[in-house]
C-alpha cells in the first residue's frame, strides 16, 4: 500500500512566536524519524528496481541491490507469457481501479455532502452504521460478497470486482468530514437566498469546494483497488479478467512441477507500480488548491 502523506500545515503565527533555537532542536528529531520512514518505504522499491533487472540465474546469486543484465529480456519474456496476457491484466486493473474509484468517489461525495449539510431523520443512525462499516475489514466481506454475487449470476464478471468497490464507508466518512469543513453553511444559505436549487448548489458551490477532498478519495480508492488481491481472487475464475495482483500470483504459484517465475513476477511488480507513481505525480497539484479554495471571511 502506498500511503498518502499530506504535508503538515504549520501555522505561521505559531512559528513566529517560537524562539529560533528551540525550533531547530525540535526539527531534527522529526526529520530523522521521517527520513527513517522514507528509507523503510523506499528500500523495498529499490530492491524491486534492482531485482527486476536480473536474469533468473542472477536473481538469487548476486548482491541484492546490484543491478543485473536482464531487464529487457524480462520485459520481453513477460510480454510473451501466454500471448501477452500480462498487458490484458494491466488493462483490467486500470479498468477496475479507474472506473471503480470514479464511481466510488461519486457515491462517497454525494453521501458525504448529504450527511454533512442536510438534517434528516436517521442521519446519525446512518452515520453510526457507516462508522461501524469502517471497522469491518474488506477481507472479511469478500466471501459473503462472492456468495451474494454468485447468486445474482454476476460472479466471474467485471461487475463482481467493480460493484463491491463502489461503496466504501471510509471514503464516505472522509467526504462528510471534508464537506463539513470545506463548505461554509453561509455560502449555501446565500445560494438558497439567491434562488439556486439544491442540484445547482451541489454543482456550482459544493463540488468545486470539495475537489481536493474528491482527489484524495479517488486516489485512496484507486490505490486500494489497484492493490486489492482477495476480492478479485475469489470473484474471478477466468484469467482473462484477472487484475495484475491475481495474475502475477498465478506466475508465482505455478504448482510443484514448475519453477516459480520469480524474475517475471518481480518485473511485473515493477511495471505495475509505474502507473501508480505517474498518477500520484500528476494528481499531486490538486491537493494544493485546498489552501486557497473555499476561503470565506468568517
Amino acid at each position: 500500500m502506498t500511503a498518502i502523506a499530506e504535508k503538515p500545515r504549520t501555522s505561521v503565527a505559531a512559528e513566529k512566536s517560537r524562539p529560533r533555537g528551540v525550533r531547530r532542536g525540535l526539527g531534527l528529531a522529526p526529520t530523522a524519524v521521517l527520513l527513517l520512514g522514507a528509507l523503510y518505504c523506499l528500500l523495498p522499491v529499490c530492491w524491486v528496481l534492482a531485482a527486476s533487472t536480473k536474469t533468473r540465474g542472477e536473481l538469487f546469486t548476486s548482491n541484492a541491490f546490484a543491478p543485473g543484465t536482464g531487464l529487457l529480456d524480462n520485459i520481453a519474456d513477460l510480454s510473451a507469457y501466454r500471448d501477452g496476457i500480462f498487458w490484458q491484466w494491466m488493462a483490467n486493473t486500470a479498468l477496475y481501479a479507474g472506473v471503480g474509484a470514479l464511481l466510488s468517489t461519486a457515491v462517497s461525495v454525494l453521501a458525504g455532502y448529504a450527511l454533512a449539510k442536510f438534517r434528516f431523520f436517521g442521519r446519525d443512525t446512518i452515520f453510526t452504521v457507516l462508522i461501524g462499516g469502517i471497522l469491518v475489514p474488506a477481507v472479511v466481506l469478500a466471501v459473503p460478497q462472492y456468495l451474494l454475487l454468485a447468486k445474482a449470476g454476476l460472479a466471474n464478471t467485471y461487475w463482481a470486482v467493480l460493484l463491491p468497490s463502489i461503496l466504501h464507508p471510509y471514503s464516505i466518512y472522509l467526504a462528510r468530514i471534508y464537506a463539513a469543513a470545506a463548505i461554509p453553511d453561509a455560502l449555501l444559505e446565500a445560494g438558497r437566498i439567491d434562488g439556486a436549487g439544491e442540484h445547482r448548489l451541489l454543482r456550482v458551490v459544493a463540488l468545486p469546494l470539495m475537489a481536493p477532498g474528491m482527489v484524495t478519495i479517488f486516489l485512496f480508492q484507486f490505490v486500494a483497488i489497484w492493490n486489492n488481491f482477495l476480492l478479485p481472487f475469489i470473484m474471478l475464475a477466468d484469467d482473462e479478467r484477472f487484475p495484475l495482483t491475481v495474475g502475477l500470483y498465478t506466475l508465482l504459484a505455478t504448482g510443484a512441477n514448475q519453477p516459480a517465475l520469480y524474475n517475471l513476477v518481480i518485473t511485473g511488480a515493477l511495471l505495475s507500480i509505474i502507473p501508480l507513481i505517474a498518477l500520484f505525480l500528476t494528481m499531486q497539484r490538486y491537493w494544493r488548491t485546498d489552501l486557497s479554495g473555499g476561503s470565506v471571511k468568517s
Binding site: R82, F233, A237, D238, D239, V246, Y249, T250, L252, A253, T254, G255, A256
Partner: peptide
C-alpha cells in the same frame, strides 16, 4: 481457466 496453485486454490 488458468488458476494459481497451492492451498489457496
Amino acid at each position: 481457466s488458468k488458476q494459481a496453485g497451492g492451498d489457496e486454490a
